[in-house]
Design a protein around this nucleic acid. Structure first.
Lengths: 130, 130
DNA sequence: TAACGCTGTGTAATAATATAACATTAATAA
DNA sequence: TTATTAATGTTATATTATTACACAGCGTTA
């Protein structure tokens, strides 16, 4: 169905770091954390991030300029993403709702334009912060 | 219903510029364009942008770090925004769909968390670029 | 094999986006 | 009036992201 992507060394190092983080990570925080593994320059981080986003292993939270690992087995490609973001503690959760994704995937605007991709970010207060 | 906001001098200058632009404007492009009107520093621009976003006169396109004027009379506050973005020509249009906004305003995730705000960005090809 | 294209890497420099800190002024409320 | 809040002006700096260039590894194919 989808081609399996074998991650390169830098991609794997950076994915592992993001994947084990409990919160979205920013590029320069990633850089700081992987310098001991030999990744020294921003560009090395950004190149790995670009690729990981492209193949759907991570997602970018646009409103926060941060990255989280994808834990939604059904989105192997980053073309339909939805997140909830707590405005106090900044906790971010990927939303996985069949109803929502179906609704958005089929949404057409007035011009009948159909979209190939979307990103949705909800903001509010999480359970703990309420 | 809503308090009318009288824009200050800087806010008005920057809103007028964005409002008459046919495409989303970036902060430093705005700065360049208003320097002849006496606005000299990035912070002056960002402060006006922050306020204009807060009161719903403009919206930020998060994936592009750019700003457009709100032409949707019903969203006087920036709490429910949706855009279509052409990936070739970068044309951005605000989507105004009663069905969509109703669906999203009422959307609840698995935890029953209800959201106070959302931003949705659709990507695809516009009529001209198809 | 060699020549090629493609992807990824390493490095330095710099561009683009955004905020901190501090002093001052204008507008509004008590 | 006094106090308070919101906006301004200015300098400096922090944060996020890309350009440019040299090179290495790998599969294809001629």
């Amino acid at each position: 169905m989808y081609k399996e992507h074998t991650l390169t060394k830098n991609q794997q190092i950076i994915f592992d770091l993001i994947d084990k983080s409990t919160e979205p990570m920013k590029a320069y925080s990633i850089l700081f954390n992987v310098q001991k593994k030999g990744i020294k320059a921003p560009l090395q981080v950004y190149r790995a991030l670009d690729k990981l986003v492209e193949i759907g292993k991570i997602h970018k939270i646009e409103s926060r300029n941060a990255f989280i690992a994808c834990h939604n087995s059904s989105c192997q490609v980053a073309k339909a993403t939805a997140f909830s973001i707590c405005e106090i503690c900044e906790k971010v959760t990927e939303i996985s709702s069949a109803g929502l994704s179906k609704y958005l995937a089929n949404f057409k605007d007035k011009d009948g334009m159909k979209y190939s991709k979307y990103n949705l970010e909800f903001f509010g207060l999480c359970k703990k912060c309420r």
